[in-house]
């Protein structure tokens, strides 16, 4: 029933002597078979996917805009226009979340990418054996659930019984509060040295830095895999030619690997920006595991998505949470467009 037309054609094709002959089909005939009439049954093929995606992914975009223009409980919405947006833009918590999101992205992205490129380049060296095993080990943290690994890391960071403070104290360094420390790392260093610094030098909280270390650990292997795939696309002749011209290892890396890897780097940047602006799981799981409130301590790990979830889950502020989600989407879109406009042009060669 689904494929009436195709069957009809099959029969036609069978009954025609041309198709019956064993002689190779001509290009014209092949094209004639391929370019057939409209196959209406195609709509039945795409229907299931489009029903699900339509209901749960496309319709919600419009509905989210509607929700963001309202206040109140589910099914008892009251239209308030752009009030929720105004409320967000005048809220200290919102701006704190926005700054935290950007700082977190800046703390995690460059380091993850630099480390990943470094390890990928070493792994790519032709003499390295067991490349597959190394790659598999590096990739493992990405596969394991965030909740599971966050619990382990939160325990390593634990102020009283954690491994990290045990090592620090053995080395004669002061123990730190890590995930429950709302003070900035700049401030902590200054206090350690006994100097005063202006507040704008406080820097991100130690808790946010600890979460960032965890994030770097989690995503490094992912970036390594992508960089490795990119490295293998660079023709070996390029390196050989440069080597004959007397280039040393660093020059090879600087003048061949970096420019020819640019499309891969661009890809990694685009998805890392999108991913880190939306980060939720690692922060939520770390907060839980360190028995902090969501986005704690003192809101210092509250990224936009965490803030939105808190508004939704804890306070049932649907309209406000929807407005935050839409603002966040616009930020993501702006960054992505910026990446394509500015970096996209430069990375193509």
């Amino acid at each position: 029933m689904i494929c009436d037309l195709a069957d009809e054609e099959c029969i036609l094709a069978r009954s025609t002597p041309v198709a019956q002959t064993i002689s190779p089909r001509t290009a014209v005939q092949t094209r004639a078979i391929r370019k057939r009439r409209t196959q209406w049954s195609a709509y039945i093929f795409i229907l299931p996917a489009f029903v699900i995606i339509g209901i749960f992914h496309i319709f919600p975009v419009f509905y989210a805009v509607y929700v963001s223009l309202n206040k109140g409980a589910i099914n008892r919405f009251a239209f308030v226009g752009l009030d929720q947006y105004a409320r967000a833009l005048s809220s200290g918590d919102f701006w704190n979340a926005l700054v935290t999101t950007l700082v977190y992205a800046l703390l995690t992205m460059p380091i993850t990418m630099a480390l990943a490129l470094f390890f990928a380049y070493l792994l790519y060296q032709p003499f390295v054996k067991a490349r597959g095993i190394f790659r598999a080990i590096f990739f493992l943290p990405y596969v394991v659930s965030t909740v599971g690994s966050a619990i382990v890391w939160a325990w390593i960071f634990d102020p009283r019984s954690g491994l990290l403070n045990f090592v620090l104290t053995r080395l004669g360094l002061p123990a730190l509060r890590w995930l429950i420390e709302p003070d900035g790392v700049g401030l902590l260093v200054a206090q350690g040295l006994g100097v005063n610094i202006p507040t704008w030098l406080d820097g991100p909280s130690l808790a946010l830095v600890a979460v960032s270390i965890f994030t770097i650990w989690q995503f490094m292997g992912y970036d390594i895999v992508i960089f490795l795939a990119g490295l293998t696309t660079i023709p070996n002749e390029m390196y050989e030619a440069a080597r004959i011209d007397g280039a040393n290892g660093f020059q090879l890396f600087r003048h061949i690997t970096i420019p020819l890897l640019a499309p891969t780097t661009f890809f990694v940047i685009v998805i890392s920006v999108i991913g880190s602006l939306q980060s939720f799981n690692s922060i939520f799981a770390m907060n839980q595991a360190a028995e902090q409130s969501l986005g704690g301590p003192l809101g210092s790990t509250s990224t936009l998505t965490v803030y939105m979830f808190d508004q939704l889950y804890t306070y049932s502020n649907y309209g406000y949470a929807a407005a935050i989600a839409i603002i966040l989407s616009c930020i993501i879109l702006a960054f992505t467009l910026f990446n394509f406009k500015v970096l996209g042009k430069r990375s193509s060669y």
Partner: peptide, 27 residues
Amino acid sequence: MEFPGRDVLFIILLATMMIPFEVTLIP
């Protein structure tokens, strides 16, 4: 398969990949 609107529908489908999950979460 050949059907009217195939390319448009495919682009719509791809565009949904760009939607952040935060937006669809609440609805």
